[in-house]
Design a protein around this nucleic acid. Structure first.
Lengths: 209, 209
DNA sequence: TCCCAATAAGGCAGCCACTGTCAAAAGGCA
DNA sequence: TGCCTTTTGACAGTGGCTGCCTTATTGGGA
């Protein structure tokens, strides 16, 4: 049905799809406002819906869960498949690093501000964090399955994927803990460098080199 | 009731604590039975409580959430602090490997059977998996904070901790996917070996292109 | 042995996340 | 304009989870 969009498939998302996307942004904005003001647990979906001027049912239809209101990212969905071939390359960590660098570089100031708000909420509420980690794990496993469909390497590739998720989420967490003092890519870069070198003896990298 | 443990608690867990632990085991057993029979989503806490002959309120008091009925492990709690000094050693992956090996070796056949049931349920239901991942992440962060309280190494240690969690969970997942054909430690061992070597070019380990 | 504090368990009422269903509305096409 | 597809909203219901209060159960002292 909608998968093979008509003539202007790639560049034209369709009219209704745009309206839906605009509504999602409006709903997420309203949700973040309320969550920051009164806390995630003390805001009912009904209030978010009222603030965004849609019905509660529509909020659930679009987002599926309360946590998704925070972790949803428009750029997140189409980025799955084109990433896969990158990881089949010689240097998968380098590919991920480059993808993250490009991703952050493409963000405008408004996008970055939005991401900060979302990250801050994620690490203030374990339930949201759990949803984010699971989301990242599943996404990484989809990529892993695309890279290595054969069974004997599946474990290795998946462990690598999980490690990447752990590295990126750890970086995001420390970006948040540092109160966003430095650009997020620096944290990701440090985390990924660690993955490359392996963990034989991380204590060697102690205070005085 | 089967409270046959009238013997004085040797290690000082207290009498009531023992009764509570016995009840928790009984409740978890009843929950696993029902979840396996009819699926996690189609079993209400009320039914679990009835099967275990306690009140629903007590189930929540003991476990806090429905997912915890599956992921709870008696051995899980005291194992936090004694693990920390191990990781400060020269070879943290080796320390984890040894801890896991010893942990699995200490399991009796009944324990192993219980773990298989729990793992199978975890990977059949994303919500339970999310709870388990979050639990593992938080535990790993507690250990990480104990190992490296200083701020500048915090990111590195946390990334390492997350990577370990990803490796172990990936191993558990493939243990489950293999239908528990081989001992679980083999999967953990393979996953941890990967962490040691780093991810500079895992494709080099390919079968034969 | 009995009684009394302290703690744990049960019962009850309620909130709210989430879902299925169906009717109303909006948009596209002749 | 009228028909048809898709989308949205309203309603009702399920069940996870919590706070509050009452009722057992336990342990200790007179």
């Amino acid at each position: 049905m909608d998968s093979t969009d008509d003539a202007p498939a790639s560049a034209a998302p369709g009219l209704q799809a745009r309206k839906k996307l605009a509504a999602m942004h409006r709903i997420q904005e309203a949700a973040l406002d309320l969550f920051e003001e009164r806390g995630f647990d003390d805001v009912a979906i009904e209030e978010v819906a009222a603030a965004a001027e849609v019905s509660p049912r529509t909020v659930y239809r679009y987002f599926g869960s309360k946590e998704t209101l925070v972790i949803w990212d428009e750029e997140d969905e189409p980025a799955v498949s084109p990433l896969a071939p990158q990881f089949a390359a010689e240097d998968p960590v380098g590919a991920l690093r480059e993808a993250m660098r490009a991703g952050f570089a493409a963000l405008g100031p408004a996008d970055l501000r939005l991401m900060r708000r979302r990250v801050a909420l994620v690490y203030r509420h374990p339930g949201i964090e759990a949803a984010l980690i699971l989301h990242a794990y599943e996404k990484s496993r989809r990529i892993a399955a695309a890279v290595a469909p054969d069974a004997d390497r599946a474990l290795e590739v998946q462990v690598f994927a999980h490690a990447c998720v752990g590295a990126v989420l750890g970086a995001m967490r420390h970006w948040c803990l540092s109160e966003f003092a430095r650009p997020p890519y620096e944290f990701v870069d440090r985390a990924l460098t660690l993955l490359e070198h392996g963990f034989t003896a991380p204590d060697r990298k102690r205070a005085h080199p």
